[in-house]
């Protein structure tokens, strides 16, 4: 067997050491996100972010859903600054799972624009973005944070559907 190098050992030892705590903090972040959704109360956002640091790591560096949650919190906070101050991202969202699904679904829709998918696939994009469930803040943040070949084009096209 090959001997592990120090760097590899260090990485996995660190992960093992923070494993329990990071799972607990993720559970806590999910619980707070559920409270935010249930009460439509954005004052939970600082508490959610307070769950993120774990020693030298952050939850959003270790877990894809926590990464998405941190971006969603930024979207919701930005939406609160808009006229009307309505947390649009929380519309028709009833659980943490719904919250993450909505984020992923918007990403999928935007990717269809990026990839110039056929008309039928884009009709669903038009219908979804044309409703009142997705804000300009969400479009801007997701095109910034997710991978698109041409984010500028995606954002411009998506705005046309809003």
């Amino acid at each position: 067997m090959h001997k592990q190098n120090d760097e590899t050992s260090s990485l996995f030892n660190t992960l093992a050491a923070i494993r329990t705590r990071s799972f607990q903090q993720k559970e806590q972040a999910i619980h707070l996100a559920e409270q935010m959704i249930q009460h439509q109360d954005l004052s939970y956002i600082p508490q959610i972010f307070a769950c993120f640091p774990i020693d030298v790591y952050y939850l959003h560096e270790l877990d894809a859903d926590m990464r998405r949650l941190s971006i969603i919190c930024e979207i919701v906070a930005a939406e609160a600054m808009l006229p009307g101050a309505e947390p649009i991202f929380l519309k028709n969202v009833f659980s943490f799972r719904d919250l993450i699904h909505k984020y992923i679904y918007i990403t999928f829709l935007l990717r269809r624009i990026d990839l110039h998918m056929p008309k039928q696939a884009l009709e669903e994009v038009a219908a979804a973005l044309g409703g009142d469930q997705i804000s300009i803040c969400a479009l801007r943040k997701i095109t910034e944070c997710e991978i698109f070949a041409n984010p500028g084009y995606v954002y411009e096209q998506a705005l046309k559907y809003l």
Partner: peptide
């Protein structure tokens, strides 16, 4: 396109890595 959330889950990685090394 690989839409994996840009993160690799490593929690059980070391366990299976050691098994494969053996």
């Amino acid at each position: 396109v690989h839409d994996d959330g840009m993160l690799l889950s490593l929690w059980d990685y070391d366990k299976y890595r050691r098994i494969c090394m053996e």
